[in-house]
Design a protein around this nucleic acid. Structure first.
Lengths: 210, 210
DNA sequence: GTCTATATACGGATAGAC
DNA sequence: GTCTATCCGTATATAGAC
């Protein structure tokens, strides 16, 4: 059996420590509320090193945002462009993958969406998925089903919004939902696991409402 | 016919002008990114007057946030506690009301949720709806339907999340969705109008999946 | 109540020693 | 590469004249 390499914080280079800390702080607080001092403290390094490795807070932010967007989009495009799966299978895989990812990293959706609010044009240009999505295999499969009379062509944007909303919204509203429902972290995560089975089922019924 | 009183900006008191401007700026940019200078300019008043009428940016923010939360919750509690409507009717009324409100004021959900992210305990204490919701007529009606075997008791939190998500999520992700779908403002609003009929229908089908 | 001018605080960035 | 000390712009808040 191969010896597994366990990385401790100490094993990271200073540059990596800063990036990891920046990811945590930016994703939790957003660009405007994040302090470079928070990041330095989180990373356990001297404040001046942030400017040594990354010229400015803005540059550091852009790196984190770019990586976050790319990583987030990667999952969608991969699944949505597989020629060998049905639409139903794609939905199941997507929901499974994103619920898993977001359970581990629940701040990502709010991070992306709130920063887009503050700098729409700047960030939306960098959206890799834009034209990729509209030419995807999944969209074609939606179109075929509509042509087959399962639902109307006009419903496709709604169905996509619903898929995204049912999966992502609970994380965007996580503190709100936890407070309203009196849930602790574990109970919330259990609900999210349940949704792996439920969302594909709901999507299926919504796609048969003529 | 009675003469309708048309209020122009001039007709507002300085205090009202500041509050109206603060609402716009805070809801658009959030507390951290909003500048008092932006608010003063938006209101068309001298910067020093903000501190004259409201001791600080924080105080002004708290007033706006409190009003926004109260106003947002008011709609839910009213509809959810009506003894004389069925659950199905309540869902229809709620969706209709909120899609209308949010089409006119699309920044509210992101404003509330992103500020809750930054100051969870502080703001969530002020949530009026917390215990109100769990004792509401609507929740009892959900329970009755579950007892009648329409769906499982365990599904109720999911169904509430879905109702909220299907209605509110498109506004939280508005710039993202518009960019991804290549939609302009009018097309987006048209979709939201369509959802007034569709969400209640989808909810109905989700509440019959045994 | 409203203005101009200014004080004060905070946060990002840098100079320079080690 | 890393540290301490400090600079400097920006933003909030206030003093004081009108």
């Amino acid at each position: 059996m191969a010896k597994k390499k366990v990385m401790r914080e100490m094993d990271f280079s200073t540059e990596e420590k800063i990036k990891n800390a920046a990811r945590v702080v930016f994703q939790k607080k957003g660009l405007a509320a994040a302090r470079t001092r928070d990041i330095a403290e989180e990373a356990g390094v001297n404040l001046a090193l942030l400017n040594y490795y990354f010229r400015s807070k803005e540059k550091l932010f852009e790196i984190i945002m770019y990586e976050t967007l790319t990583n987030f989009a990667k999952g969608i495009t991969g699944i949505f462009n597989d020629e060998n799966t049905t639409l139903e299978e794609k939905i199941g895989l997507l929901v499974e993958k994103y619920l898993e990812m977001l359970t581990n990293d629940p701040n990502i959706p709010m991070f992306i969406l709130s920063e887009i609010r503050n700098r729409p044009k700047d960030l939306l240009e960098k959206l890799p998925a834009k034209s990729v999505l509209s030419n995807s295999v999944a969209i074609n499969q939606f179109g075929e089903m509509a042509a087959g009379g399962e639902f109307s062509e006009k419903d496709i944007p709604h169905l996509l919004m619903n898929l995204l909303g049912l999966t992502v919204f609970p994380f965007v509203g996580k503190p709100f939902i936890m407070a309203l429902g009196g849930l602790d972290e574990l109970e919330f995560n259990t609900l999210m696991q349940e949704r792996k089975k439920m969302i594909p089922l709901w999507m299926k019924t919504m796609m048969s409402v003529k």
